[in-house]
Design a protein around this nucleic acid. Structure first.
Lengths: 188, 188, 188, 188
DNA sequence: TATGAATGAGGTTTCATTCAT
DNA sequence: GATGAATGAAACCTCATTCAT
């Protein structure tokens, strides 16, 4: 009878997916990790049902957001001129912007770690690890730092950022990296 | 007509309060920071209403749990034989046990920090600060560490523990403290 | 596993809205202005959530009931053969049937008057005002009566009906209108 | 162990009762007819239990408030110089001040009218009735007014005041009395 | 007799998820 | 494949009432 949002057919699928990812970043960032999923759908200009078709649960949606960030990181790691300091800067920026994602991933302690998350973790390790020796050599990372140490450090910082008001995050991250002994590019 | 829980009268007040605090620790620890408050009441063997009388909201309840821990810390700090390493060990143990409390306190970023939390923070700072010079002198803390640095480190560790399965927490904390350059008594 | 109410899809939306309005009239009339909203949902054969989707709060629900009545009044006012006596009769009948609605609308004195209510009031004023001069001329209303007077009279009667047992309302209204000096068609 | 409010023994009984009545007027007036009863107890500086001992339910408490007002009215009626206009002014003032009481008395339509309320009604009728003939004679009340008419008018006005913001009540009452054709002393 | 904590039923509201169209 | 209304379980919280002291 009426004409709600036009049904653009399959063509809209990709567009919708992208819109949902963007909306997810925004909404989670504004409303926190417990933002109602329908807020994401609304922000994306998409029906509830489409949200669930693309991302059957909260976790999947968040992992997709993370994956985007990892891809970006891998691209940066593809440029031979980028060093650990730069990569960590990028990771920090992501953490600052989408702070909450990390809050949702593995939200339930004592839950078997999500394999998809583990995979992303591995890819981050590769990207950062490729620059670690150089970083240690130039003093951008403490002597004796292992790849696991770097990941641990990233986790400490990213998780802590989760609790800080947006306005303080950049400063806070800077202090934390300093305390940890890493040189990190200031967030853009 | 039926026999509800007996009304033990006002005499039960203190007992109830204590029971609620214990229950809160347990329940939050098991069900996570979003555990329904009625689960706490039930675990404490207390009516819904009593919970709300003693602790008008989640935040207040959690702060009371934290306060207990701070009191313990202050007692430990009263013993001249206890050094920073020992105090941090105790803090870490608390964090491991009641991991989630930190998750709830200041759960809403961008919210003006709760003054009650700030007060507790100050007391922790005093307790730890009193031992800092010694710790730096003996190499238990990195050279140049300030009280703020110690608090930052505690925050990084405690927050990160929040995300780890219970079984891994002790190990995880040990690795983190090592990375941060602090000597810390192994969790009990 | 069980068979909850069938999800009839969006097609049911209009039907649900109507069912809720009917249920609201009935339930409020029977249980009084503080009837639990879930009683309305149940009576309408509709889920809790649907009630809240259509009518986000009690006030909105009640205003919708009132609006229906105002529409009926406007229709009656559209018929040139209807005089003030007839219109007031209709208003009185509405008040008798849905007595409580007026109890809920503007339930909180000292609250800024709801603009939606003001709008309805304006529409009632138009409908009644169009017949006032004639009514004064024929002695159906006291000499010198203004539109505001008519509204005041309606308010006095409608509010008072709120307090009377259903069985007495028609008589009570008749007495009140007589005291006020208006000729009003006996309630149907 | 502690010393809460001192238990002054039976001597305090009368004092408590009075305090509760005062508190009831204030609290109902400020919080509306649904004010929690414990707010009344608190405002009276009296324990919950004492409230219930003196006034086993809301209705009883409210009737006691009304009774006080009726007594005042009867005292005024004892003075031969007071006419209907003055008595109605007093009634109006009471209605304005304690507006809500009438809201609570017989809050449930279709409930058998409370006999205590009926008795008060009778006393009001006597007080007002004694002045009616004079009032009609002097034009302070419409010709042909019966005692029942006066009571009906009082009810209309008092009930309607219930819905008005405090600031407007005096004006509103004046308009209503004028519409009803009674001369009434302006509220003090 | 006064006190005030305890109780718990019940109303309100939200939101993850389903499903007819 | 998209849409968006419907569902209802479940959390939150309030408050009338009881009762040990």
């Amino acid at each position: 009878m009426s004409s709600p949002r036009a049904n653009l057919g399959p063509a809209a699928a990709a567009r919708n997916r992208a819109a949902l990812l963007n909306a997810a970043r925004t909404v989670f960032s504004e409303l926190g990790p417990h933002a109602p999923l329908n807020a994401v759908a609304r922000a994306a200009g998409v029906g509830q049902g489409s949200l669930y078709r693309h991302f059957p649960d909260r976790q999947t949606l968040v992992l997709a957001v993370l994956e985007e960030q990892v891809v970006t990181l891998e691209e940066a790691a593809g440029d031979p001129d980028t060093d650990l300091t730069g990569l960590l800067g990028q990771v920090t920026r992501h953490a600052i912007d989408s702070v909450v994602v990390i809050d949702i991933v593995s939200a339930t302690p004592d839950t078997p770690p999500d394999p998809r998350l583990m995979e992303l973790r591995g890819r981050v390790a590769s990207a950062l690890g490729s620059r670690l020796p150089d970083a240690v050599a130039t003093g951008s990372a403490p002597a004796g730092t292992t790849v696991d140490d770097v990941l641990l450090a990233v986790e400490l910082v990213a998780t802590a950022l989760t609790r800080r008001p947006a306005a303080e995050r950049a400063d806070y991250a800077a202090r934390a990296w300093k305390l940890l002994g890493f040189r990190v590019t200031a967030g853009a």
